[in-house]
Design a protein around this nucleic acid. Sequence first.
DNA 1: TTGCTATCTGCAAACTTTCGCAATAAGGAG
DNA 2: CTCCTTATTGCGAAAGTTTGCAGATAGCAA
Lengths: 143, 143
Amino acid sequence: MPHCHTYLKKLRDLGYRITPQREMVIHIIAHSGRHMSAEEVTEEAKKRSEAINVATVYRTLDLLVENGLASKLDLGDGKTAYATGEHGPHIHLVCRQCGCVTEISDGDISVPLRDIEEKYSFDCHPYHFSIHGICRNCRERTN
Amino acid sequence: MPHCHTYLKKLRDLGYRITPQREMVIHIIAHSGRHMSAEEVTEEAKKRSEAINVATVYRTLDLLVENGLASKLDLGDGKTAYATGEHGPHIHLVCRQCGCVTEISDGDISVPLRDIEEKYSFDCHPYHFSIHGICRNCRERTN
DNA sequence: TTGCTATCTGCAAACTTTCGCAATAAGGAG
DNA sequence: CTCCTTATTGCGAAAGTTTGCAGATAGCAA
């Protein structure tokens, strides 16, 4: 299971600088074990008696996403959620109506990512990959 | 291939009202055959010599997304793109670095959506479903 | 056609996210 | 340890998106 240090090392290896702000953001989302909005991360960071700016939080989160260390998720609540791949590769079933997210393990289903990689030279990030649709509750409520 | 009327009928069947603003938005994105930002849709609508508000455009686009008639896509350029399933179901390969989108037909790859539907009672929307990763160009530039 | 009612729109304000720029500081070289 | 270079931060402003509310109107019933 990847740890803060793993993320930090990966960033360092990629040539990025390790700053207290980045350490803090990584620590927070890696240990939360859930999806967090940029605002939540910022609040959490400020609790740790350190000043950190919202813009920096956004930049750090985007940095992690760009390098495949975290993923962005639109939960349809007007905010964007971020999460690390801390609890292993999985697929998100995102409901378009209520925005709820069901996580299923990628072992449950075999998406042939390898085929895509070969055919399109596209390097798929296995963590957090989303399928949109309507969840059972919403469907039942509508019927 | 779905047409404006199909979308309008679907909305009406779902109990929504058909307003000139909704017709306009649907007409615009269904005929564009590409991804459009909310701003582009608004501009286009205003060209058609009708007043329409940005808030209404957002609300209409979200309505379409919630009902599986269109999809939202984060292209990483600070704006959200919307598109109908006009040109058939397909998969988006979204690059996390440059934000470019490669569309591949769902015939190229068989994502076992049916399995997910059965196992999780989740009604997958086949149109526009995204896989994130790194495109060939960005990978080559990095190496 | 007319009237009714809940839905929808426009507006303005609030909120979320991005950007430019000057100041700061990480990390390597000496 | 000190200096240097350049990436990174914080700030304020701008851009993009959502929300609450009052007024307008689609669609139904008569």
